[in-house]
């Protein structure tokens, strides 16, 4: 008991209370609702009915993978570019990157609609250039675009951090030993920024898979993601239980993908730790 009440525990106590109240308790509620019916009796019915949602699950996973990949394709070069800029420029780019994150998600999504709508800014521009307007809002593409737009700072930041940590002499050594620009990228910079890539992918994927609002607005109500489904279930007390079981399955899926990711980053962490010992 003495050990339990050490100084460390005392300092951690507020956080511990916080965790129990707002993380552990809600999880237990999710678990409880998942396996009970409206009368509170134990049932597996909720779980069995999940097969009705398998299409939505698959679409969500597919779109999350696409948007994560999109974020990586756009985010990596940007992160690399920023890391190579002067200190002054870096600050400016960082602010530009973070600025949208300071704006409310709803407002960002609405403005995205205003821009992409059939009568919106983008199509007006196309028309004024005497080009055919494009129907965007209400398509899968629009939703993926919205997801990439919203989540890609989460991809850029960890990659940027990882690239700036690479010792400049290692890059010079690669060049000295015969690497041209492209080979430096593939043989040194990419492998050495792996930890950043993994965190970036994890953060974007987890955010994407639980997206709801963006898909409702930019999807134009034509289709829904699993996040939307969960939200809908929780709007009436009678479907709480279904919503909870979908959430539970989602959580398990995310945990599995995190575990897979961690396998990669663990290796990375170990070698990073080793290099610290080496120094």
């Amino acid at each position: 008991m003495k050990k339990f009440f050490s100084k460390g525990t005392a300092v951690a106590a507020p956080h511990l209370v916080w965790c129990v109240l707002f993380i552990v308790a809600p999880l237990l509620f999710v678990l409880y609702y998942s396996f009970t019916d409206t009368s509170g009796a134990f049932t597996l019915e909720n779980m069995q009915s999940l097969s009705d949602y398998s299409d939505i699950f698959l679409t969500t996973i597919e779109m999350s993978i696409i948007s994560t990949f999109g974020c990586f394709i756009i985010g990596y070069p940007l992160a690399y570019f920023i890391s190579r800029s002067s200190e002054k420029q870096k600050k400016v780019y960082m602010v530009l990157l973070m600025l949208p994150m300071w704006t409310n998600l709803l407002i960002r999504t609405y403005s995205m609609m205003a821009i992409l709508d059939d009568g919106g800014f983008f199509n007006t521009l196309l028309l004024s250039l005497e080009l055919a307007p494009v129907h965007i809002v209400g398509t899968k593409g629009a939703v993926i675009f919205g997801m990439i737009y919203d989540f890609f700072p989460y991809m850029v930041l960890p990659i940027y951090t990882a690239i700036t940590k690479i010792d400049h002499r290692v890059i010079e050594a690669a060049s000295d030993l015969g690497c041209n620009g492209m080979q430096i990228m593939t043989r040194v910079i990419l492998p050495l920024s792996r930890s950043g890539i993994i965190s970036g992918i994890t953060m974007v994927f987890v955010s994407s898979i639980s997206t709801f609002y963006i898909s409702q607005k930019l999807g134009g109500g034509t289709f829904e993601l699993i996040g939307d489904t969960i939200e809908r279930q929780f709007q009436s007390p009678s479907t709480y239980h279904i919503g909870a079981s979908i959430s539970l399955v989602m959580m398990i899926l995310i945990l599995i993908s995190l575990a897979v990711m961690n396998r990669f980053s663990d290796e990375e962490e170990n070698s990073a730790a080793r290099s610290r010992i080496g120094k």
Binding site: R169, A173, S175, D176, V188, P191
Partner: peptide
């Protein structure tokens, strides 16, 4: 002539080995 095309190699201060 860029570094990677010179017949000159370098042993760097603090080695600069490839950690990966």
């Amino acid at each position: 002539v860029p570094a990677h095309r010179r017949h000159v190699n370098t042993v760097f201060q603090k080695y600069a080995l490839f950690p990966h």
